[in-house]
């Protein structure tokens, strides 16, 4: 018989602000968890990196300094190499059902790996579609990528840009606006909703909507804390989590469209990449996946297989 469950409060570190498009989803998730466990599990969301910075979140959760948190896959690759496949551009299709299916299958492979490191993966969220926002001219064809200095996050995205003939520049998000304004870089890879909230369109008005996403986000908890939750409540948390991912796909797609429309109204020139555009880019990027495979090793093959079958 399960011991009488003690109420657990999970201080949950979120790097984005409570005005972000994911925030209402997260708030609904936390409320639902609390309701359905009758207050035995309480998720205390702390937005805007108030608790820990994004790059410290994983370690803070592992050590128990913070109960739970979320980061993009980039910040987890250092610990779980197999997640390297989840960082690159163009692997999250713009159809929510398929994106959710891939993410769920990847989770099934990587969650046990995370557990070995003291992390309980609650769910992963496929990111919204990417835009590439440029200062001077839009990127439409393959040739447009050539010679551009593009800000991106992470090593694998950098390699992909190189495969497209561009060069990758790492710039702190806080300095991105000025860097674009002053043409330190020509373009930035960004999420459409963040391009709106970060006012990126003001300085980089040529926005190409690439539709597909990159770098899914993981939502996780400290494993010891997780084990203090009764098995029934654990089950409830996982159910609520699965629902939140399933149900909010349309919300994210709608929000993205809204962001693009808003930016257009504010003077941005939005170009929506066609199926042919995306196919051409993907073909160019194929060799990078082999490079990732070389770096990750055979333990990553199952993840790669999932992506291959669905992309």
């Amino acid at each position: 018989a399960a011991s009488p469950a003690k109420a657990q409060t999970v201080d949950f570190a979120v790097w984005y602000s409570d005005r972000d498009m994911y925030a209402p989803i997260m708030k609904a998730w936390a409320a639902e968890v609390e309701k359905r466990t009758q207050g035995r599990v309480k998720i205390n969301l702390q937005f805007s990196g108030a608790l820990v910075a994004a790059k410290d979140t994983l370690n803070a959760v592992r050590s128990g300094a913070v109960g739970g948190g979320t980061t993009s896959a980039s910040f987890v690759i250092g610990l779980v190499r197999e997640l390297a496949y989840v960082e690159p551009l163009f692997w999250i299709p713009d159809k929510p059902e398929i994106a959710n299916k891939i993410v769920k299958e990847v989770d099934a492979i990587t969650s046990p790996l995370l557990e070995k490191h003291g992390i309980k993966n609650l769910f992963s969220y496929p990111s919204a579609g990417l835009v590439v926002a440029c200062v001077n001219a839009p990127i439409k064809t393959l040739a447009d990528w050539k010679g551009k200095k593009i800000r991106t996050a992470g090593r694998w995205q950098g390699l992909q840009l190189r495969a497209l003939g561009a060069s990758a520049v790492a710039i702190d998000p806080g300095e991105l606006y000025i860097a674009l304004q002053n043409k330190t870089v020509d373009c930035t890879m960004f999420l459409s909703n963040l391009a709106l909230s970060g006012k990126i369109y003001e300085v980089a008005p040529y926005i190409t909507y690439l539709r597909e996403g990159a770098n899914s986000s993981l939502y996780y908890m400290n494993l010891d804390l997780w084990k203090k939750i009764s098995p029934e409540d654990q089950k409830t948390v996982m159910e609520v989590s699965a629902d939140v991912v399933k149900n909010s796909g349309p919300h994210v797609v709608a929000e993205q469209e809204r962001a693009l429309g808003e930016m257009e109204k504010l003077g941005a020139k939005v170009y929506r990449a066609s199926d042919a555009d995306i196919a051409a880019i993907k073909k160019q990027l194929a060799p990078v996946w082999d490079e990732i495979a070389k770096a990750v090793g055979p333990t990553g093959d199952p993840v790669r297989e999932v992506l291959k079958q669905n992309m």
Binding site: K55, S74, F75, I77, G78, L79, R81, H117, G154, R155, G158, A168, A170, A295
Partner: peptide, 10 residues
Amino acid sequence: TDELSFGMIF
């Protein structure tokens, strides 16, 4: 855990 750095070089 042989943790890797993140960024442009591993």
